[in-house]
Design a protein around this nucleic acid. Structure first.
Lengths: 340, 340
DNA sequence: TTGTACGCGTTATCAT
DNA sequence: ATGATAACGCGTACAA
């Protein structure tokens, strides 16, 4: 019922707790005979060290904290998977929390993680986080912090992210190279840097190819229901620019899929009448008809890289070495499919 | 840098550690004046109790363990969200692990969780788990265990799941009521109970409606790549039963979506030539064209209910009350869309 | 009202 | 080769 402790093993074997501890931790100054006795009994009793005592003694928890805005999300799920995989290899556990895009909650969760004594913290910021005291608190507590995907320039810590601007630029440039000239854009919320940067990449691609930027081709989608936003904006787009638009670049795949639904229903041929380019390469993008051309944003790799860096920093701290915050850009890639 | 302890507060105030502890924990036997002094300083220093010490002292961790086969999965993601939401309310943290359908890994993870001293454990079993010693070990350690979705009858603990057989029965009965008679089935792996039960529900619906069961209409899809399995099986289905099949019930939505892709590409009209019924109501089901009629399997509710029950049991243990394992069936619901 | 002493399980230091 | 002791931070029975 109650977990076995060193004490019980010592008692049963008639030796001291110290010796048991040494035997189990392979200290050289304990006889082979004793070591074997101890290890055998420990195995038999299924002993495992009490992690509270260990934590108290060594002040290390073998635990990471992870905060994301939303877990029910293909991209973030992939990131988590990458992080869990690396943590697993290091025999670390991961505490996962969802901020639900709520700044106050995020703050509270950070406090909880700090008080839990986690060895490191990974965060993808909520869209509503504009104050960073809670993040600096992490750093001031000597806990390595890593921001990924939704990052902030105002915090001095390691970051893993994609180059949204460049990726969007490449995506739109591809459309242009294919001959499309009237390219609409469904952009995301005005706040998050991602959505801003993708918009800027779109604009720059137009400019660099001498295509005049037409603000009426840009639609703001921020009702937090991407699929329907995509559907409705597609409808508006067609009624606004009937015949005078030949391509559409959306800030994420879901908007594109909503648009596809509308186009399919209204017999607007993809890509003949309008070409589509998404962003993120959600699983859905590959199974929809027509399959969606999009930008691969490798969440799994991002998760692995993020965890790798964090472990590097954790190790530095353990060894008392100082480290420099790193900024790593995860490469993206155009995925060519049927929609353009 | 280093977290503040009671000791420092005591020193700074020139009083004993005990008094500080009592003041912070609102013991009655400490003067108002002292209490205020202590609380003010604690707030100023941003004191928070060392959770290792607390865990060691009280042997409780305010932490749950959660093991799922795969996080990148709409259904499981939803379950996690439900669990996290309830845990949040109780001020509990959740350690999330992925077994990747690997029995050995699942076992190791259970050991880790036990040694971490988690207050309770939630598991959706891997498909390859047929030995249950590790689960009984949890119970023997006095830790509440709850199985959800992928459960086993051979473990004596609380369980939250859906009635796969009944749900499949209702789904197929609906198809029959609509007039379909030659109903094919894409079934899942032979092992997991879910896939067996859904198959049995399918058979029973046929039997109860005097439709002869035709084994040649059942296709085994177990290549772990549901979308392609669905696509390929649909192809086979058509070549095997051209014109002699009018509906298809798949063990999950992804198979159905693969089939839709094939039917769409080959101009086979849904539902005119073949009607489709999926299972799970993944997000994708609602956005695909045609939208997929399916069985809603409410993961979010399942997660919430699972966590509720677990917390009930954790409370019982804390109070020393005994409790009976519960079995809760989460209701499913037919979602009518365009595919049938 | 305040403080002393002990124990939770572990490991590091120092004696034996 | 082995063991006694202290310390990590906290809560609590008990003494003052």
């Amino acid at each position: 019922m109650k977990p076995v402790s060193l004490k019980q093993i010592a008692k049963e074997l008639g030796i001291s707790i110290t010796t048991v501890s040494k035997a189990l931790n392979d200290y050289p100054d304990v006889s082979e005979k004793t070591r074997k006795k101890v290890k055998d009994l420990a195995l038999k009793l299924d002993y495992s060290p009490n992690s509270f005592a260990l934590g108290l003694r060594k002040n290390e928890s073998k635990t990471l904290g992870l905060i994301i805005p939303d877990n029910v999300h293909y991209f973030f799920s992939s990131v988590i998977k990458g992080i869990l995989e690396v943590a697993e290899k290091h025999d670390y556990l991961v505490i996962v929390m969802q901020s639900n895009e709520d700044y106050e909650l995020e703050k509270k969760q950070v406090d909880l993680l700090i008080s839990k004594g986690v060895a490191g913290i990974l965060i993808s910021l909520s869209n509503r986080t504009h104050i960073f005291d809670h993040l600096n608190k992490i750093i001031n507590n000597g806990i390595p912090l890593l921001l990924f995907d939704k990052i902030s320039k105002n915090v001095n810590c390691s970051k893993v992210f994609i180059d949204d601007r460049k990726s969007a630029y490449e995506a739109v440039s591809y459309l242009i190279k294919k001959g499309y000239k009237r390219i609409a854009h469904f952009r995301g919320d005005l706040n998050p840097q991602n959505s801003i940067d993708r918009f800027l990449g779109y604009k720059k691609a137009l400019a660099d190819n001498n295509i005049e930027f037409d603000p009426s081709l840009v639609y703001l989608c921020n009702n937090n229901s991407d699929f329907e936003d995509g559907y409705n904006s597609a409808k508006k787009l067609i009624s606004d620019h009937q015949g005078n638009v030949d391509a559409l670049f959306t800030v994420n795949d879901l908007l594109a899929i909503g648009a596809i639904k509308y186009f399919n229903q209204n017999n607007i041929k993809i890509p003949e009448q309008i070409a589509l380019m998404g962003f993120s390469n959600w699983f859905m993008a590959s199974v929809i008809t027509p399959a969606l051309t999009t930008v691969e944003q490798n969440g799994f790799e991002m998760g692995k890289k993020a965890a790798d860096i964090l472990f590097h920093e954790i190790n530095c701290i353990r060894k008392g070495i100082s480290y420099e915050p790193q900024k790593v850009v995860i490469p993206t890639e155009l995925i060519f499919r049927e929609s353009s």
